[in-house]
Amino acid sequence: MGTLNPVEETGQSGFFATRADFLVNWGRKNSLWPMPLGLSCCGIELMAMIGPKFDLARFGAEAARFTPRQCDLLIVAGTLTWKMAQACRQIYDQMPDPKWVIAMGVCSSSGGMYDSYAVCQGVDSILPVDVYVPGCPPRPDAVIDAILKLQKKIARESPTGRLAGTGEAIVDEGTGVLHMPPNRAVERSTLDLHPHDPRARRAARESK
C-alpha cells in the first residue's frame, strides 16, 4: 500500500509526471459519450449493447445522452437515407470537438443491400468516419470491439498538436503509449491499422 502513496512514504505531497497528450487521451478514450443515431435494426443491437447484458459501462461509454451537444461519439446505426442525411450532418455539426464517428452495420458503412435511389451509399460520403463495423446488424460484441479500436485510435492522437494546429492530429508511432503500464500496453500491430494509414504503408514497404 505504502509504495503507492508518496505522501505516506515521504511525508510530502507527491506529484505524478506524465505527458499532456497521454493524460488527455486517457481521459477522453475512457469516457466516450455516445450519441446513438438508431436508424433501423442496428438501433436494437445498440440498445442491447448499452443495456446490462453487454454492459458498455465496463468501457466507460454507456452515457448515451440523446443530445448531440453533450456527446463526442456519433454512432450511426442503420440505413441512412438521403432525406435523413441532412439531419445526421446537423447532429454531427452540433457535437462539440473533439468528436468521433462509428459507422455501425453495412448500411451506414456502404449502403449495404440498399443499392437504391433513396439511400446514402455510406455515411463517409457526408461525415468523416473513424471505425466501420461490418454485420447486418452487427452483434453488440462487434460494436464493443469497435469502441475498443476507437480507444486505441484516440490513444494515438495528439491533442496538443491539434490545439496548436501543427501538422497531423495523429502522433507518430509509439509516442502516445509511452507511459502506459506494461501490462496494459497497446499492441502496435500493423494489422490493426487502416491500409491508408502512413504507418501501415511504411510497414508494407519495409516488409518487401
Partner: peptide, 27 residues
C-alpha cells in the same frame, strides 16, 4: 423532381445526393 417507381427510372437513382449537396452548400 422524379417519380422513382416508374419503370424508366434507374433503380440507383438520378444523382441521388443532389438535394443533400445543395443543402450542404447553403449551410
Amino acid at each position: 423532381g422524379h417519380h422513382p417507381l416508374r419503370k424508366d427510372f434507374p433503380h440507383q437513382g438520378i444523382d441521388p445526393g443532389r438535394l443533400y449537396r445543395e443543402w450542404d452548400r447553403a449551410r
